[in-house]
Design a protein around this nucleic acid. Structure first.
Lengths: 358, 358
DNA sequence: GTGAAAGCGCTAACAG
DNA sequence: CTGTTAGCGCTTTCAC
């Protein structure tokens, strides 16, 4: 019904294409009367500018890509990603940007997707979920011209822009809480062992233990992959070693582990206490409400988009990081529900510093 | 590093732009030697064609949009949507298509997104999740030029292309199973009451009851909204009326309802039996494995993309529907786990018929 | 404040 | 099989 182009509107309004273009793009250099007339015609005709033509001429597509690499196991079975996607999508709406989603399922997908990502005239910028290792895709992306922001600390930080939560500090707080509660045999179920996320959370765990002067029993650390089932399996392995508390690196793994504990006829938190990570909505509706680290996931997505758009508009600057805080939420599964502490605001800054001031 | 254009490659290879274009687009009309030479130059230079220019000239963007309207409550808290998105994304990869995601959070978003959806030179086609009512967005989309496929039966079916599962038949089977097992006070927790999905599942429930000659006690039907919490709340309301079996219109609601039952100190399935709908992965890992209707969600997404691309390539044809079967999976929560029936294939057809032959 | 003109980088007939 | 020639529909200096 409307195959009209700028020129048609111009003709109808008795002005030039340039003027219509100015009206459409809200340029200030248009007379009030002219603007009104043109706007009315656009209204009545239902004209919409052609996106491709506009992109070609302006070198801007107003699209950003969200790339979830294949090394990220189980991206959409873990509620983390939907929440993240939601935050990103909403932020895009606010910026009048369109979000393209690239789910890299396997090597074939990667080969197919990479050129699309690298094409000019396609994406103004890219949000890349940090994967289990800095793979080929990662490298090709950082060495390309496209403004790139990595979600989560990458392996190779050198001169790449990224945003992350303070996993080390958060994991340390979670572990310290368990220590403070007097647990003696504290175990950990890790996430995918090769992800920086998991590495950082392990580091936090170890720091807390070290500072409390506690030695770590290696048999109390078992590898998971962030999935519910891996938590279940990990707990089965852990049970014979009689842990009295578990720090699970994701809520979903904590849920799987709790399932294993209950199947073994043990009580939570009496026999085994739990702290998770993420604070998914489900954490507070479980039969035994989960003590966990709150990640501001949606907010994280929003911040990421804001940062990326900044990069796009001001040109990519040298390494810029943003580290958000993640606060422990105390509920029932840790056996010490009392003082819920308020959620601390994330702190924003640039430059070489790695962590936000507490 | 590579701001090269077609012309640069042409010059380097000593051919014309057309020839390079042909090579890039895998046209057969190129000599083997020429092709090889051009390909090599493209390789070494790392040339990627400009997407905007290509779209403008070819009138094809190779992008499709997935639109989740705001009337769909809780889109990303229900695992249904991530699974669907995954299916759609993978299918897009297979077709060398880029997926754009439009999450409509509120009225503002809708106003912001609609023009982007309607713009030419943006999307080759649109996948629209059917919402709770055929709202403004729906109407503007169907009356536009863009090939449109609705996911789930729309309210107004007239001449709109859609794909759905056979909710009526599936709900009927689920209910009949409960009846066959001898339950006397069978209740239902509905989904969002204004969605066709919920309406169809209610219809199936009622058909089954009617065919078994059972009257329906209205106090045993309670409204939910597909969310976990709504299932929990609904079950609380239901409990005083002593149902002995519940058909929950989503797994997530079944889980919420089971939580309420357990909190009341009752046994599943002894005191209250359950049948869900969706067959999310979690259904089979619950402490009491959930009997439920299996929805081929990912497959559904893939089929949807296939259909849409068909529409794009062959031009939009008059109303075309695809109804997939959804089969009951019998586990423990219904108290009658014995004969697991195989999953029946979805049946494809066109025209005015509404249901697949059983 | 408004218009004219020159592209943006590619595809797609049409010749040959 | 390859080259020439028009655009695709818009933005954006540059004049006036």
């Amino acid at each position: 019904m409307n195959d009209l182009k700028l020129e048609d509107i111009a003709k109808l309004a008795g002005v030039s294409r340039s003027t219509v273009s100015r009206v459409v793009n809200a340029s200030p250099n248009v007379g009030a009367a002219t603007r009104k007339r043109v706007e009315k015609i656009i209204q009545t005709t239902g004209y919409h500018p052609n996106a491709a033509a506009r992109s070609l001429a302006s070198q801007r597509t107003n699209m950003i890509g969200l790339v979830i690499p294949r090394t990220t196991s189980a991206f959409f079975t873990d509620p983390y990603f939907p929440h993240l996607t939601q935050g990103v999508a909403f932020a895009c709406n606010n910026h009048h940007m369109t979000l393209s989603l690239f789910l890299v399922g396997n090597q074939e997908d990667e080969n197919e997707i990479t050129p699309r990502l690298l094409r000019r005239g396609m994406l103004d910028g890219i949000l890349l979920q940090s994967g289990n290792s800095d793979d080929m895709l990662f490298r090709r992306l950082i060495s390309s011209h496209v403004p790139l922001l990595v979600l989560g600390r990458p392996f190779e930080e050198k001169s790449v822009n990224y945003i992350d939560v303070d996993n080390i500090l958060a994991a340390k707080n979670a572990t310290s809480h368990l220590i403070r509660l007097g647990y003696q045999r504290i175990g950990m179920i890790t996430g995918a062992i090769r992800s920086t996320t998991s590495i950082d959370r392990q580091a936090g765990f170890k720091q807390a233990m070290a500072e409390a002067g506690k030695t770590i029993d290696p048999s109390l650390i078992v590898e998971g992959d962030f999935s519910e089932n891996s938590g279940y399996v990990a707990m089965k392995k852990l049970l014979p070693f009689r842990p009295d508390a578990i720090f699970a690196q994701s809520d979903v793994m904590a849920i799987g582990a709790m399932r294993a504990v209950q199947e073994a006829g043990l009580q939570i938190p009496k026999d085994v206490a739990f702290v998770g990570f993420d604070d998914l909505p489900v954490a507070s509706t479980l039969p035994i409400k989960l003590t966990t680290v709150h990640q501001p996931i949606t907010h994280f997505g929003i911040k990421a988009v804001d940062l990326l758009i900044d990069m796009i508009e001001k040109g990519t600057k040298p390494a810029k990081r943003m580290i958000l805080d993640a606060e422990l939420i105390i509920r029932d599964s840790c056996g010490g529900n009392s003082n819920n502490r308020p959620i601390v605001q994330g702190v924003e800054f640039e430059g070489s510093a790695l962590k936000a001031p507490a």
